[in-house]
């Protein structure tokens, strides 16, 4: 399952890059994120609660930032286990382009799910992923905009 989108953020590319690497900002933006802790350079552990169709699943797993090209692009990826509900992994390739005083953020997301989530919720993964991506990047745009105006 792949999907992509684009957001415009009223901030410089370097500021947006900083936010994208800030665990506190990521925690605010990741939908259902209960906790996030930095385990090392570009490595975090996280607990995220997600609703997928009839299931409410608490995932515990790792988030990592890879393929970093300052201040242009990186990949944020996560892998989590939801216990008996199954497992999920996925990531987003994020690309930043300066456009005057603003930054255009392009992303493309891929998700892989397994176990009960796949058996019962596969029909809903596409719409759920789209919704989650919108929530994440929408919130991120909002937070980044506020930080700039503040």
């Amino acid at each position: 399952m792949d999907l992509s989108g684009e957001y415009r953020i009223p901030a410089s590319r370097e500021r947006v890059w900083e936010f994208l690497n800030d665990p506190d900002i990521l925690k605010q933006c990741i939908p259902g994120c209960e906790a996030i802790a930095k385990d090392g350079d570009d490595k975090f552990s996280a607990t995220v609660v997600l609703r997928i169709g009839p299931m409410k699943v608490r995932f515990t797993g790792n988030v990592s930032l890879t393929d970093k090209v300052y201040p242009e692009s990186y990949r944020i990826s996560g892998e989590g286990s939801g216990g008996i509900a199954g497992h999920a992994k996925g990531g987003a390739n994020v690309r930043l382009t300066q456009d005057g005083s603003e930054t255009i953020l392009n992303y493309s997301v891929d998700t892989h799910i397994g176990g009960k989530i796949a058996q019962l919720g596969s029909r809903l993964i596409s719409s759920t992923s789209k919704k989650l991506a919108d929530q994440f990047f929408g919130k991120f745009t909002e937070v980044a905009s506020q930080s700039v105006s503040a």
């Binding site: 892989h112 397994g114 176990g115 796949a118 058996q119």
Partner: peptide, 8 residues
């Protein structure tokens, strides 16, 4: 990926 999608 080998996940069974028709399980209900």
């Amino acid at each position: 990926d080998g996940q069974l999608l028709t399980a209900s």
